[in-house]
Amino acid sequence: MSLEINQLVGGYGQIPVLHELSFAVKDGQVVGLIGLNGAGKSTTIKHVIGLLRPQSGTIKINGKTLAENEDAYRSAIAYVPETPVLYPDLTLREHLELSIMAYGLDSDDAWQRLTPMLKKFRLDNKLDWFPDNFSKGMQQKVMIASAFMTDASLYIIDEPFTGLDPVAVHDLLALVAAKKAAGASVLMSTHVLANAQTNADSFVLLGDGRLRANGTLDELRDQMQMPDASLDDIYMAMTKEA
């Protein structure tokens, strides 16, 4: 099991925002993390990537917490943030080289994975440019390429579709599918429920920092007694219930 969250209580400072959250993302699975603005999706992600410390509960990746083995924990995660975050002083090539060095990847292998991605994203002729000067969509593609060239066991992608053109959305989903097929786990936070429904194996619905529902689409339909409902319908129904 790649990611296991157990009774997580956490937040900013002393005030808990997440209340006894528990869910898991298995190997070879894509889980959609869904909820209204302010539901706790980004806070959950920040706890998983180690930017926030749980007040109680545990987060394990491949069976280890951050405290038990920090290097192994961090090496296992690849992250695509909601807003592109770039180094102002590095060219695109240097961003990728830095990621290769930091994760201890084999340079040749990494560039073999990167080259077709960069071509698909039309970044292959911009390697010596500063990504800080790219458009938002192109910066997002840099983030995606940087994350997906690794061989992480858990991919966390936060609102990845924002700013991407339709072709890039399609390419990203293909990358997610490829990683899934290779046995990695993917936790994908998104408001684009149509994409989530088509590409995720199961869903975690958050509301006010609590787990509202967790399961496959069929399981959610049973829970809500809404056979044949789309994820969008189930989501709206759950929101009204709250």
Binding site: I49, G50, L51, E70, D71, A72, Y73, R74, S75, I77, Y79, P81, V85, L86, Y87, S99, A102, Y103, G104
Partner: peptide, 13 residues
Amino acid sequence: RYRDVVFTHMYPL
């Protein structure tokens, strides 16, 4: 300088 870049806190370094 890179305190605000999330990856500097995430890299296994």
